[in-house]
Design a binder for these strands. Structure first.
Lengths: 258, 258
DNA sequence: TCAACGCATTGATTTTGAGCAATGAAGAGT
DNA sequence: ACTCTTCATTGCTCAAAATCAATGCGTTGA
């Protein structure tokens, strides 16, 4: 157990590809500062309002970011997957609750030393800045999906988002019997909170898409896309078809889902 | 006219308070680099996909950020008000279209020199980083508003957002006959695109809130809040009441709207 | 083995909002 | 004055989704 706490094998650049191009001494410092942590599905990482003295990266699994309203409703405002950063740099308390949506592995840094390193290393600072920029873009993409007036359309947009934005995550999608298959990483209740609908409506929307031959619901958390064009049309974003054929329907992917 | 192009009176720190604490030489450089520009309502600033070689700040008026979908729908994904930054730093083309929602005044920098300055000045870099952070928070707040399943609730959330996030903007709200009055800075059509509804539904939602004694619609773009608690309850965010009583219902504000 | 539980689904009913069309109301240009 | 335009509003119909209620279904735990 003593060897565990000495975190013998940490290799930041391997776990977070975005950091790989940093100068060697900085990587060494990051390796020394980083702490691995595992989280079981459902576990709470940080609560809104916490000081939460940690900057971290998701290396495996999915974190759910949400706001718990006083009336008990929970609003999911984003999913963090492998490579995504969380925590607040040079800034106040957490605005949102972080919870493990699946079993997770995290790479954590204590905030103080990380900020100090950030101040000393412009390259790292630049990477963080770009992370933030892409996070902003992602939020705006969510907004577009959420602006779709129909639940079916929002669900279609959500599924496409899983394909385009989160497709790098292992097992999030793959092929099964030669069909493009998406792993829905969160429960119907979570999807409904994310998409601004009731869980029943989400369920009906899933099955409506299935009835129209667009999806095949293999399991509640596993759907095969039978007709990508129609799915994109439902989402009202035909342009996404290009992105999908470019990024996804390439021979590169083919791992089986379990 | 020659004097116009020499931009004689630019004082960045006065126009963007966030920049005021920068070291004197940096401010001088910013003053030298900055270009003022005025935009009439409805004018296009940048289109999605543009290289758009500009980093800028809004100093007056409101910019609308939106995406035009291939099917013609337009989705507003955010409003930029005084103090907000736009443009892409160290990054690719614009993801969204920028259009003046009202007459605007902008403070523009050419991207190259601005990035160079950013690289040389960690203090400026820090400020930009924090701007991005607050932009992320704002996007997530939008997501929560958009997650409200009912149009009335989304509209209520939007109005509260105008109070809390945009209340610093001059004339956005104030008092009129002793009542808290909100200036709705964009058209019904824009609101509907932002909130994922039809303009007709937005209009009906406004009048439904008025019929329930929550709002008084003075003009289409000017509403008085008669019952803040109920408005917050409609939005499903009772916690906002605290923020509002703290931030707004203080003796500080009292300017009249025109 | 059998409850108990969480989650997804289905059914029935009511409300909401989209969709389409028409009417006002204010402003710009002639 | 008048037209033309743009925007907000209203009326109407019908589809979509919320809401309430109940059922299946797999897992956990006694």
């Amino acid at each position: 157990m003593a060897t565990m706490s000495r975190k013998p094998g940490i290799c930041v650049s391997r776990m977070i590809p975005e950091l790989a191009n940093l100068p060697e001494p900085i990587l060494a410092e990051l390796n020394a500062l980083g702490q691995m942590r595992k989280l079981a599905a459902g576990q709470l990482l940080a609560d809104a309002g916490d000081a939460f003295d940690t900057i971290g990266f998701v290396t495996d699994g999915i974190l759910r970011m949400q706001k718990t309203l006083p009336d008990g409703r929970q609003h999911v405002v984003g999913l963090l997957v492998s490579g995504d950063m969380f925590g607040r740099v040079f800034d106040g308390p957490m605005q949102f609750t972080l919870e493990a949506a699946t079993d997770c592995t995290l790479l954590n840094f204590r905030r103080g030393p990380f900020e100090a390193l950030l101040t000393r290393c412009p390259e790292l600072d630049r990477i963080i800045l770009l992370q933030f920029l892409s996070e902003i873009d992602r939020s705006r993409d969510w907004m577009i999906v959420l602006s779709n007036p129909r639940v079916r359309g929002r669900l279609a947009g959500f599924l496409l988002m899983l394909c385009t934005r989160f497709h790098k995550v292992e097992h999030l999608f793959g092929t099964m019997n030669g069909r493009l298959t998406i792993r829905v990483p969160i429960s119907r209740a979570d999807v409904s909170q994310l998409l601004g609908a009731r869980a029943e409506s989400i369920s009906r929307a899933f099955h409506a898409l299935a009835d129209d031959g667009i999806l095949d619901i293999i399991r509640p958390d596993l759907v095969a896309v039978l007709n990508m064009e129609d799915l994109a049309a439902e989402a009202g974003e035909p342009e996404l078809i290009d992105a999908i054929s470019d990024e996804i329907l390439t021979p590169a992917q083919g791992k089986a889902l379990h």
